[in-house]
């Protein structure tokens, strides 16, 4: 028996019918076509499917789609602001914090959630927090460095990972 759900994803409300056994990640990828959220291990080990539900970081392979009824989901596609990548995404690009890129959406979501809670984490805090996500290319050093670079700059209040505006003299 299917259930009717209304789920807000990246600010847009979606209504549809889901089987109870459909996972949130399947709903996002297969019903909405939001394939930025990746499926790695499917048993909650790898973190590639991490999304925010009502602002809380979860693994979307460990939550049923029907459980997201009435909730707000943010996926990697929803991080863009004003047509430009999120500072965490820019930091990953600028810091070469990806190799094959499969784990990247999950890492970006996890790093975004960490920085929202703790804007200037220490390296140890970054390493402990992101231990939830696996990178099979083992590019962890660049990932940690990229997250470190996003901490807010006390001088400008801007994210250090953000690309300078056109005409901005900041290096």
């Amino acid at each position: 028996m299917t259930h009717s759900v209304r789920i807000t994803v990246n600010g847009e409300a979606y209504e549809g019918d889901v089987e109870p056994r459909a996972l949130l990640v399947q709903f996002l990828r297969e019903q909405l076509g939001l394939t930025g959220t990746h499926v790695g291990c499917v048993v909650g080990e790898c973190g590639a499917c991490s999304v925010l539900v009502d602002g809380v970081l979860v693994k979307s392979c460990l939550m049923l789609a029907v459980q997201a009824n009435g909730r707000e989901v943010t996926t990697i596609e929803g991080l863009r602001r004003g047509g430009r990548p999120h500072p965490v995404q820019e930091a990953f690009v600028n810091g070469f914090a990806l190799q094959c890129g499969f784990c990247t959406p999950g890492f970006v979501m996890a790093a975004h959630a960490l920085l929202a809670r703790n804007p200037n984490p220490t390296e140890e805090e970054i390493r402990r927090d992101l231990s939830s996500n696996l990178c099979m290319c083992t590019g962890y050093v660049q990932i940690v460095e990229a997250v470190k670079s996003v901490g807010s700059d006390p001088g400008t209040g801007r994210h250090r990972g953000q690309t300078p505006e056109r005409g901005d003299s900041t290096p």
């Binding site: 979860v58 939550m63 927090d129 939830s132």
Partner: peptide
């Protein structure tokens, strides 16, 4: 466990 699992 990890952050995501602790949240749920």
């Amino acid at each position: 466990a990890d952050v995501q699992v602790r949240n749920r």
